[in-house]
């Protein structure tokens, strides 16, 4: 399996603040990744460094086997759609799409046109005058129609309603099936995208705290609920990442697989076991109450 991105000990500091702290991971070609984490965790900084828009303080970074900085061969294979993408004031939507053709070798005009219809974008309107949601759609259209071997969406749908978002997911999956490529999605709406993601990376406080296949991850945590005393009894010897007492009742989230024996014991104790969503799990992990990596390693 060849690698789209290889990152080794990557750091970025601003004065004393470490925005990205010794992060290492790699992205395989032809997979959909989720890069998740809270605001200011360092996700955008990492993506900016992958695309050579920011410079790393230290560490190695290879994209398609080469350094991306000033490397046309690499840069022309990347499409990075960020929430803060700037467009020239006088550009209309049509101008942005025209120009995209010049920068993305796999640009598919027809696909772009059909997406413009889907998202009901006014081609003649200046980008500056678009609403937040429409501006996001411009980015989404460029990102999808560029068919770049490495396509990165950073918070692509600010201001988009649920209908438009699900349209984005549908088009993304359909086109991905036809033209496989590496896709990185960075977002807060974890539950919405969790079905799409094949692999999840979580960054917190500039550190990578989770790097795992999402299938493996789904069975990783569960929550138990029941009478407080019974729950406490059951929790003994397990990694608890969250506890919520409620009168005489309690619920707790446990990290790690439950064996058949565990499940039987739980039902004997009258406890209810429910799966934990990816979003819940990441919230617990990034709340700073527990060292996520250590917990996962168990």
């Amino acid at each position: 399996m060849s690698l789209a991105v290889e990152i080794n000990g990557l750091s970025k500091s601003y004065g004393k603040v470490k925005a990205v702290d010794n992060v290492s991971f790699s992205l395989e070609e032809g997979k959909i990744y989720g890069l998740l984490g809270r605001n200011g965790a360092g996700k955008t900084t990492v993506m900016h460094m992958i695309t050579a828009q920011l410079f790393a303080t230290s560490g190695q970074l290879k994209v398609f086997g080469e350094e991306p900085y000033e490397n046309d061969k690499v840069l022309s294979q990347i499409c990075f759609i960020k929430e803060s993408q700037k467009y020239p004031d006088n550009f209309r939507v049509a101008d942005v799409l025209d120009v995209s053709r010049l920068f993305f070798p796999n640009w598919d005009r027809e696909f772009a046109d059909s997406l413009v219809q889907d998202f009901k974008l006014p081609l003649k309107r200046r980008v500056k005058k678009l609403s937040r949601g429409m501006l996001s759609s411009v980015g989404i259209i460029v990102g999808l129609a560029s068919r770049a071997p490495l396509t990165i969406f950073d918070e692509p749908y600010l201001g988009l309603d649920a209908v438009a978002r699900s349209l984005f997911y549908d088009r993304l999956l359909a086109d991905y099936a036809e033209y496989p490529r590496t896709i990185v999605l960075s977002t807060h709406l974890i539950d919405e995208v969790s079905q799409l993601l094949e692999h999840v990376l979580v960054i917190d406080n500039g550190k990578l705290i989770l790097n795992e296949e999402s299938d493996a991850l789904r069975g990783r945590a569960c929550s138990v609920a029941g009478f407080a005393s019974q729950v406490e009894n059951f929790l003994e010897g397990k990694t608890v990442i969250h506890r919520e007492p409620f009168a005489g009742l309690a619920s707790a989230t446990i990290l790690g697989h439950l064996s058949a024996q565990d499940r039987k014991r739980a039902s004997d104790l009258g406890l209810e076991i429910t799966p934990v969503s990816l979003q819940q799990m990441i919230i617990y992990l990034t709340n700073g109450k527990i060292d996520g990596e250590a917990a996962i390693a168990r």
Binding site: Q53, E70, D72, L75, C79, F80, K86, Y87, P88, V99
Partner: peptide, 16 residues
């Protein structure tokens, strides 16, 4: 200010 962030964002080299 108008074109540099836009074009670098679209994957242009600084030299180009």
């Amino acid at each position: 200010g108008q074109t540099f962030p836009f074009l670098i964002g679209f994957g242009a080299r600084r030299k180009d």
